[in-house]
Design a protein around this nucleic acid. Structure first.
Lengths: 235, 235
DNA sequence: CCCTGCAGAAACGTATACGATTCACAAGGG
DNA sequence: CCCTTGTGAATCGTATACGTTTCTGCAGGG
């Protein structure tokens, strides 16, 4: 066993900072445009600025934070335009994943999806709907056995996350998604991959339309663009 | 104008390190598994370890570098399994992008694609084939007007990059891709999005099969997995 | 009254420094 | 001969320190 001395240094301080900030941004606790002052964060976590900067750089690559030269980092604004673009990415990835998943499904996979579906139907707390929704989708896609695809999809969902969770679930209610989920589930159970993908496609498209509708009503500005881009690549 | 003293400090040293290392990894100059010693890199760029670490963290988030606690960073191995998974991601994203792009194409877009196609057909230097291939694909997809999707696609291609460039182009030669590109181009010109996507799907699938075939012949080991995962998220 | 210009303060970006851990390799025992 | 064990070197991860740039608030002029 280890000497247990030398203070309780976690292996890497930057990881903790990264995880915490990530969660706070995705939860919406840190709003878009909020400045992320390094000294402040360092003090809060009881570390120096180096691990903080490392964490911020990682968040930058993930599209959650934007660096302005000599002016520090801010929580990246996700514009409505970008959310719409992400809807298309999600559409592409989920449909492909489902196409791969359907032939791989075993009874256990379907049972899990049905269980989540039932839990979803019974849930009255709106705040939990979106989490259950995500779990349902993942349960259907997981058999695709393509970890890279699923990881990318998870990233996309997280990036959309805060922007849509609070909006869409209130508009769409419970009935419409449940009905569409049920239809997708049936197609999967029948082993009809083509129909399942078709229905998933329509399902995501409807969600996107509801997002657009909500934005059209609640927002006054038509379509303001956001900050540069996520990954700082591409000159 | 600026005082011109205090040394020629570029705005951010970490960006330069990041860009250079990125290029070297993608070009294959740094092979998979190669250790990235911070002090060494710092000395080479004439900076300290802090900007180096920031650059490495970003590369980690991009899936190009893996950190092992207390043991530093290495160039991430891209396993053949992961390349196959990335083929599926690319398939999904490209097909969706093309579906969006076809209705948006104007004559100029088609002309650009045809020009690249012609240049491709005339090129005899194998080393340039893959770059021209990429340019052709991008020319077709660019009209989709979804910057997020295109950026993600570029990332995926870069991640596959070094692993397939040298292999596939040698196997597939020039004729097969040219024929398929031509077919895709015709469908786009005819405004037939469905046919174009169908042909693109087949095209990418064939490329994947050629990769598999090449691997089957040249590699002795069946399917060795690589290192953990790219983004350090997801417990 | 609003715009311009300048100290002082705050914050950024990086270099240097240092404890802690891991690696390399030789010496000793089975 | 091979495996274990211990010591020195190399490397990592982070704290501290420092020059430089940007922001803030106030004085002065149009």
């Amino acid at each position: 066993m280890k000497p247990a001395l030398a203070a309780e240094h976690a292996p890497v301080a930057s990881s903790a900072v990264h995880a915490t900030l990530r969660a706070e941004i995705l939860d919406g606790r840190l709003e878009g445009g909020a400045p992320l002052r390094q000294g402040e964060i360092a003090q809060r976590f009881g570390v120096s600025k180096i691990p903080v900067r490392e964490a911020l750089r990682q968040l930058e690559s993930e599209g959650l934070v934007a660096f302005r030269p000599r002016r520090g980092a801010i929580v990246r604004e996700i514009s409505d335009t970008e959310v719409l673009e992400l809807f298309d990415v999600r559409l592409a990835l989920e449909c492909r994943a489902l196409a791969l998943a359907v032939p791989q499904m075993i009874e256990q996979d379907l049972r899990l999806a049905r269980d989540i579906h039932a839990e979803y139907a019974a849930e009255t707390d709106r705040a939990r709907w979106s989490a259950l929704n995500l779990r349902f989708h993942h349960a259907l896609l997981e058999p695709c056995a393509n970890g890279t695809l699923l990881a990318l999809l998870a990233d996309v969902e997280e990036r959309m996350g805060a922007a849509i969770r609070l909006r869409v679930t209130r508009v769409s209610g419970l009935e419409r998604p449940l009905r569409e989920h049920s239809a997708i589930l049936d197609a999967c159970a029948a082993g009809d991959g083509v129909a399942a993908v078709e229905r998933l496609h329509a399902h995501i498209d409807t969600t996107r339309k509801e997002f657009v509708a909500h934005r059209r009503r609640s927002s006054t500005s038509p379509l303001e663009p956001g900050l540069p881009g996520p990954g700082g690549r591409r000159a």
